[in-house]
Every structure is written in C-alpha cells, then in structure tokens.
Design a binder for these strands. Sequence first.
DNA 1: ATGAAAGCGCTAACAT
DNA 2: ATGTTAGCGCTTTCAT
Lengths: 350, 350
Amino acid sequence: MLDEPRFDDADLHERVTIGDVAERAGVSIATVSRVVNSRYGVAPATFEKVKAVIDDLGYESSLIARSLRSQRTHVIGVLVADIEPFSAEVLKGAANALRGGDYELVVYSGGHGGDHVGWERRYVSRLSGTLTDGTVLVTPTVAEVSLNQPVVAVDPQSSESAFPTFASQNYEGALTATRHLIELGHRRIGFLGGRRDLESARLREQGYRDALHEAGIEFDAELVLEGGFKEATAAGPARQLLALADRPSAVFAANDLSAIQTMRTAQELGLRVPDDLSVIGFDNVPESALTHPPLTTVDQSIQALGFEAVRTLIALIEQPALRREPPSHVSMPTKLVVRQSTAAPRAATA
Amino acid sequence: MLDEPRFDDADLHERVTIGDVAERAGVSIATVSRVVNSRYGVAPATFEKVKAVIDDLGYESSLIARSLRSQRTHVIGVLVADIEPFSAEVLKGAANALRGGDYELVVYSGGHGGDHVGWERRYVSRLSGTLTDGTVLVTPTVAEVSLNQPVVAVDPQSSESAFPTFASQNYEGALTATRHLIELGHRRIGFLGGRRDLESARLREQGYRDALHEAGIEFDAELVLEGGFKEATAAGPARQLLALADRPSAVFAANDLSAIQTMRTAQELGLRVPDDLSVIGFDNVPESALTHPPLTTVDQSIQALGFEAVRTLIALIEQPALRREPPSHVSMPTKLVVRQSTAAPRAATA
DNA sequence: ATGAAAGCGCTAACAT
DNA sequence: ATGTTAGCGCTTTCAT
C-alpha cells in the first residue's frame, strides 16, 4: 500500500526488447523471434526456456518494430477526421465486426477535425504498408487513395470509386424526410446542406429538391444553405436561415448535428420547436433522442455501415483474388423516425 | 471516368520513401530528413529543391519508422477494451481535448472485448515508447502499468494508483439512484453490479447498500448479482433477478448497458416498465434515451472525463517535472436524470 | 552545408 | 535446430 504514490523513476522501467530476452535465455534474437511467432524449427527444450524468460521479463513484441518488417499485422485501421457522433457509431459497428476475430483495431484521428482536404491521404501514407493490413476511410475528403493494401470507404465521396464503398440510401431518405414535412402541410422548407464533396450530402439535397418538385413547390435558392455537417459550421447558416424575412416553417438539416444546432439556434431566437419551426435531421445518432423536443430524423444504420465495411475489408485482406473483382458499392435502407420536432405549421393547413 | 472500376495493380502504388525523395532530389537521405523536420543547417536552395520533390512525389514520412527512432511522436494513445457506448463517449471527450492542438489520436482496441485480464499491459508495451507519447487507459483491468512514459486512467481500478485517474463520484451517484427508488416507495430493490475489479463498480454497490441501510431496508444478498457492465454478461443475471419468487419491484443496474438489458429481459418476461418494474441505470450514455420507455439514470460527464484525462496527459508529456508530483485523482459530480423507467411500485405506497 | 553510417526492434533469408 | 546477416524507413551522431 503506497502512502503517497508518485510517478518516480522506479516506475519508468525501460522497455524489454527481444535482445534482452535473447541475452537472458542465452540464445540468438532470431530464436526468440521464432518462439514468439511460433515458427517451426525450435527444439522443445529451447522453446520452453525462451518462453519462461519471456514470461519472466514480461516481454511483449513491439507492434511498431514488427510492422516495419513484416507484411501482416492483423490490425485494421480506421481513419476518421474526428470522433463525433457519426464516426463514433461507425466505430462501434467496426468493433462489433472484429469481436471474437483475431484482428485488432487502430483508429487514427487527426487533431484538426479534418479541416484539411486530403488529410486521409496523409494519414494513409503515414500508417499503411506498415501498421495496418487494410484501412477503412470514414467520410473521406478525397475520392481516390493509392495504396498498396486494401481500402474501403464509409460515406464516400462517390460510389463510383475504385474501392468498395458503404453508404445509405441517401436520396430516398431525403425524399422521405422532405415528404414528411410536406405532408404535415409545410410549403416553405429550408435545407441546411452538408459537405458538398460527399456524395451523401449531394444526394440528400437532390432528394429534397425532387420532393419539393413532385409536390409542386417551387425551389427557392434562398432556402438552401451549406452547414458542413458540424455544429460549429452549421451555426451561421442556421441563423441565416431562421433570420430570413420570409422565414421557413420547417428545416431539413442534412445530418443530426446540424439539426441539433438548428434547434439550438431556433431557441436562441425565441422560436419554439415544433410550434414555430419544424426541424428534421438525418442519421439518427443516439444524441438525436436527447434533444428537447426529441428530434425527428431519418435513421441510417450507421453501425451496420461500419460493420459491413470491416467485414469486406477483412475478406479483401485474406483473399487477394477478390481485389481483382469490381468493387461492391453497398447502399443500405433508411427509415423515417418521427419524434417530436416536427408538426403541422401553425398558421396553415395548406 | 472509369467505366468498370477495379482495384488493380495500377492502384497498388508503392510507398514513397525518404530514399525515393533523396534520390530524385540528388541529395542524401539525411538532408531530406533535415528538411522534413525543419532542422538547421540546410542551404535555402537545397531546402527548396527537396521541398519541391516532396510535394511532387507526395511523400509523407512513415509515423511508424519515425517513432522507432525518435522520442516524440505527438501522438496520444487511448487504450480501450472495446468500442461501446461508454468508451465511445470517452473518445469523443478525448478528441475534443485534442481539437486545434498539434497532437493526433490513436485509439487501440483489442478485438476480444478485453475479456482477458491484463490486456492493456500487453498493448501498452506493444505500442509505447514507440508510437505514442503517452497513454490513456480506459476501464483498465490492472491497477499498475510500468512504462517509460506518462499514463493516466479513466474509470480506474483504484484511485490510489500511481498515475492520475479520472472518475465520477460513483458512491454519491449510487446513493442518489437508490434513494430515488426508495423515495418512489420501493423496498425490494435489486442491484445488478458491474465489474468488481473496477473501483466504480465497488463504489456503486456500496452506495446501494448504504442507501438501503439509511432507509432501514434490510440487505438481501439474493438481490445482488454481478452483471459485468456488458449486455451479453448482464443478460443471465438480469433474468435470474427477475425470475425470483419474491421478485424485486425495482432494479438499479450499475451501468446503462446492463439497465437496458434488464429492460429487455423484463419485456421478454412480460413485465412492463415502469408499471411492473422500475429500472434505473448509471452513465447516461446517449443510448439510454432511446429505450422504451426512456431510461432513468445517473448522469456522469463521461466526455469530461476523457477531456480532462487528455489534458492532464499532455501536461505530463510536455512538463516532465510534473511527473514528480503526486498524481491527481479527479472525481466529477453526477446528476440524477429522471426519465420514464422508474415509478412508484404498483401495489404499495410503502 | 552535406553525406556516410549506425542503429531503433524486429523478421526473414541464408548459413551452418 | 540455431545463428548470422541484411534490411524495413527513419533520425542522429560523426565526419568531411
């Protein structure tokens, strides 16, 4: 029982290397390596002796040193720009796909919130061919990444890409969301768009436009702003939308985060949701249920996206022949989740 | 525009190494390294020339190779047993602390859900001294990890540990949760505990016991089971609790995941929540608002835990002198969040 | 100002 | 069966 615990030099043990083990066991480094990797050609007695020393010293091979030399690391990399509700759900799905298997997961996130186009190119080349056996790109800012190992993307730039992609039926989901508002009687519907470089953002906008069109509602460019998918970037456009002289009675935000920000902005402006303003989001991240009122949104199975992406990646890693096949482009269904942030407009029955 | 995109050899570009740059620029590897790391002693003309080649070739230094040689990597490691709602919130907080700074984040998760005691010892030694400048341990299974670089822990084994720890006021939170049930009129209250090796689990059980005691309710060992904090491990104990001849009218689950599992089990057994059974959780992960009915729970600021842990870790990395100070043990307040899974017991007013 | 060379911890040929 | 050796891509002395 330590009286006054301290992080002092006694705790700063030097790392035990393969050389330490070799020396102590009286064998060569190569032999230790063989034991560690259960290679053939080690005498049972030597094997046991080395194993004992390994246990004794508490040796663990350095993944980094090993990955520098050998091909397979049994590590899957996931590259995210930031850890926020959407990517966190992807990660949960990815972790789920790995459970029980013999792959480990390394998530790499830049500290800059991915505000730099091409960040993943940088990270991919910094990590791959080395640490990981394959990489999952989440909402990448580039459509192509050249790499000497398998890559798949979740919520890609384009589903025409050269590697497998995993997305939801964004167009259909956006149609459904907008129709929901129209059916409630809204005619003046704002759209707070996402990152235009992502296919998902483009398709959601198209769904919005087409739903208006089929309902005979004229498109008004004033009502369409880009919110960038993040709370910080959505704040300005949301305010702009709600400050309009002829304010929309409803806003379809291209993801939950910007929908949540829209609700916050509405509140700041003294607008009540859904009485004065209906808000609908997209994603159905868990956070969307925590708002007041709870957010109506379009559910996409984000975890399933991450799950399938990892499954496919592992298949690609283990069966190189598959890499010659045309890449699959998975598109998953969405579902309207009606909660309490949408209602009929106050003044109208339209 | 590719007609039928394929992942073929043309895409499998070899990694550009420092040697490629050196060769192309007609300088030595050492010089390129100096340019990359902005070291002194490079002629302006050489500097520019090399920089041009770097841009041209799209060279990025390998983090792995670099970390093998040099001390500082500007990467923070977070070790989690699995990516589930709790750890995901910690990660969001950690990412938040890194935003705008010049550290990057690597999350390492074993594929085995951390079902192996001491897994983090393994991962710490596999990664550290190399890839990362410091490590955040999340819900570790060991109290001490010896390492030649700073370590901090979130939701530790013990807040007596030799490194800084970050936890919530688990005892107080559990008191509050149990009192809430008692105030509603419950007398027969089950407790679905967590991983006993974690201090949080032990404190929550103590809070439960003490709240019963102060209310003059006799402790019944039959009503206390260990649920292991995960849905899979909680299922059995939850069923056992609800199948009791003298079934509890309320259950306090030691975290939200086991509370959610308890609600699910109740439903399977035909029990309505909260009419036939009240359920209260602990954590307030976003998922807790998604249940039917929404879960009453004790909120802990999980993201803040992750945030502060990273902040402290960075301070420890950048100011080695701090490592000689006694480690801080942060304890954050909790808050009861009453939603709809708790109510007065049906038959009694107690 | 620049290059040659050693070496970080490890694996994989190649010897023996 | 085991050891020797050559790197993996990089940083860092130490020469020049």
